[in-house]
């Protein structure tokens, strides 16, 4: 499956079925990130039910130092 993850073209095999699986495959700390799929926020509660499709654009953000 080809995805755009944080602006980077990314190929994931096997294809993740949903956003929760996507985060596991990307080895991202799921409690410490927020996810946008094609510009729309996917809440924590929705992650397991929200399907990921070929060509989707995903943003995964977290806290960093700032003022």
């Amino acid at each position: 499956m080809r995805l755009l993850v944080n602006g980077e073209p990314t190929v994931l095999e096997p294809a993740p079925a949903n956003v929760a699986e996507l985060l596991v495959q990307l080895r991202l700390p799921h409690e410490r990130v927020a996810v946008e799929l094609n510009g729309e926020i996917v809440t924590r509660a929705e992650r397991a039910a929200r399907a990921v499709h070929d060509g989707d654009s995903v943003e995964v953000v977290t806290l960093v130092g700032g003022g």
């Binding site: 944080n6 410490r32 990130v33 927020a34 953000v61 977290t62 806290l63 960093v64 130092g65």
Partner: peptide
């Protein structure tokens, strides 16, 4: 704090959290 794309991080490395 600021909100940014998740930076690449090594296993077990600490973060601001």
């Amino acid at each position: 704090v600021a909100i940014r794309r998740v930076p690449p991080k090594k296993e077990g490395e600490r973060s601001l959290w």
